[in-house]
Write a protein that binds this DNA or RNA. Sequence first.
DNA 1: CGAAAAGCAAGAGCACTGCTCTCTATTTGC
DNA 2: GCAAATAGAGAGCAGTGCTCTTGCTTTTCG
Lengths: 237, 237
Amino acid sequence: MDSPTTAPKSARRMVREELTRRITDTARAHLARSGAAGLSLRAVARELGMASSAVYRYFPSRDALLTTLIVDAYDSLGEACEAAESRVERRDLALRHLAIARSARGWALEHPHEYALIYGTPVPGYQAPPDTVDPATRVTRLLLDLIADAEARGCRPAFTPEMSESTVHDMRNLADQAGARVSPAYLFVSLGQWAQLFGLITFELFGQFNNVVESRAEFFDDQVRHMARLLGILEEH
Amino acid sequence: MDSPTTAPKSARRMVREELTRRITDTARAHLARSGAAGLSLRAVARELGMASSAVYRYFPSRDALLTTLIVDAYDSLGEACEAAESRVERRDLALRHLAIARSARGWALEHPHEYALIYGTPVPGYQAPPDTVDPATRVTRLLLDLIADAEARGCRPAFTPEMSESTVHDMRNLADQAGARVSPAYLFVSLGQWAQLFGLITFELFGQFNNVVESRAEFFDDQVRHMARLLGILEEH
DNA sequence: CGAAAAGCAAGAGCACTGCTCTCTATTTGC
DNA sequence: GCAAATAGAGAGCAGTGCTCTTGCTTTTCG
């Protein structure tokens, strides 16, 4: 298929795309200021100097607007992590690991409301698929590639997990479907760490670490380093 | 101090408490059905057959109502975990660990909206303190006591973490403030696992495991067992 | 070229929300 | 018994998402 997004169709299409972009931009600004609950379609229409009903030519509902913001947030986070990871020496697994983790946390701290949008409570009656699923995997992809590289280099989890048969089956399926050469054990451990990573970020962002941890950045780095050791990627291979 | 909640004051107080309870009850029912975003003060007033303005005699704002629901949710979760943990042989550390984790997950699956209320996106401009902090620590308390018992029995983390000075300091502070005899290393590891535990539950509940893990319960149990091994509580001591 | 079709914007309007204010009835405590 | 505190109801304000109708402009095509 040819790409309809870059095709220079009529002038009308161009101003439509431009206006769509302006709507999402001001919506994102409102989101960053007041959060998802405070995002008002009328307010962004007002700021753009147009009637609220006109916005419905571009987004069929408020939730549709939110959905594009969700996709954008996933992309923004994924891009930040990819950029950070690409800047470090590819052979240094532990540094790549740390770069991904740090940039995920950094992005979350810089865009708390957008982070809440994608890792917080699902918005309405919950409808993710299907546009959101692809961008959502970007950071996961990064971690997956990392442990695939690690395994190819002979790294192994520092502590071999015991898994039920169904879990082994799930891990195999997942690796196949992602096209990654990763053993069930390694995948299992890194899945747990994936949850831990975003659990740490979520706890910090949503206030669960108040009166618990003071030096957040150091604590986070220490935890990530500990995870790297458990992944067996801290030593040379 | 004497307890003013049980004191048989005037008849008016009693009907007030009763009505307050009925409001929170129907509010909780609405919450369970439509989530926090769909909780309407007018709707619960309607269901109770009273004017919406009358509800404001009992709760100064919608957020105040939500706050009590948050406290209740923390208590409900804490109670469920405590009950489950108290039912197992106290010497069996791994089983206590599993009981806490499983009941936390079970409660979350049974009360998804209430779970989202306490571990999802913070409601408005975020205001937790101070009534919420105490019930929020109940399940944390359980885990803390568990590792304190473990350490007293000679258990040690299977993998000793390396920590920065500030983290060691934070861990010492936290142990002191909680009045628990736990080494910084042990506390550090269990804090990470705490984040992992609720990260796993949140991911499962919020759909991050769609197309990733099929047998959720088995996967969860396997992860929890792996955590127990890393805590060094799976073997006898 | 010019008419039909399609796209766009605005306004009015509906049903709903949280919340405030005023007014009246009831209960309480001195 | 009477003044004060309390509870409830209703109207009303400002805001929301969303729909429908009414004009206008641009594109499309015979």
